[in-house]
Simulated assay, not measured.
Amino acid sequence: MQTIGNKAPPTDTGQRTGRGARQDLVPLLAGAAVAVGGVGAMLALVDLDSPLRGPFTLFFLIAAPGAAIGAALRALTPWGRAVVSVSGSFAVNLLVAQGMLALHVWSVRGGVAAVTALSSLILLLTVARRLPGRPARRWTS
């Protein structure tokens, strides 16, 4: 049984262990993921011949839509959000590929640009929905 009280948290003694150290690592890993995804997108768009182009571009194609969808689904539990984000990421990539193949306009650069545009649109719609000072929407029946 856990007791809930008004005690002040223990002061930091300069040495972080356990959960605090993990929380400090999350922004670092997020920044590294953004950097790897950005490099992958740029390598694909510039068409630079590099052995890192394939893995970094694949990481971008999975992470960009997944992050945008995950940001839109804050109400879900972390595991549920992760499952839906990864599934949505694959769905966005497959729909972009299917649409480009059906229109006979398939190219690597075009695919990366289309996934970037869709991911940006999803993220911008999510941010616009959460703007402060916006009047509350009332649903009436």
Rank of each mutant, 00 (worst) to 15 (best):
R137P: 02
G99R: 06
V115E: 04
G110D: 09
P10L: 11
S89N: 03
A64V: 09
A113D: 03
P65Y: 01
P78Y: 01
G70N: 03
S50F: 05
P132V: 13
R138M: 14
R22E: 12
L101W: 10
H104Y: 10
L25Y: 00
T116Q: 05
V105D: 06
L123Q: 03
A97N: 10
R22V: 09
Q98M: 15
A8Q: 04
R138S: 11
L43Y: 08
R109I: 00
G110N: 04
G99Y: 04
R74E: 15
L43Q: 10
P10T: 10
L45N: 06
V127D: 06
D49V: 11
A91I: 13
L118V: 14
A91F: 12
G20H: 07
A102P: 10
R16P: 02
G5M: 11
G70L: 00
R130P: 02
G88C: 05
R19L: 11
G110M: 02
T3F: 12
T3C: 08
D24H: 08
A30V: 12
T11I: 06
R129I: 03
V105T: 13
T17S: 14
S141Q: 05
R109D: 11
P78L: 04
V92S: 02
G5N: 15
R22D: 12
R22Q: 11
G37S: 15
G111I: 03
L124Q: 06
F59T: 03
P78R: 00
L52H: 10
W79A: 15
F90W: 08
T11N: 08
T17I: 11
S141L: 10
A67C: 09
G20Y: 06
G110F: 02
I62N: 07
V39T: 13
G70T: 04
S85Y: 00
G88R: 12
A8S: 12
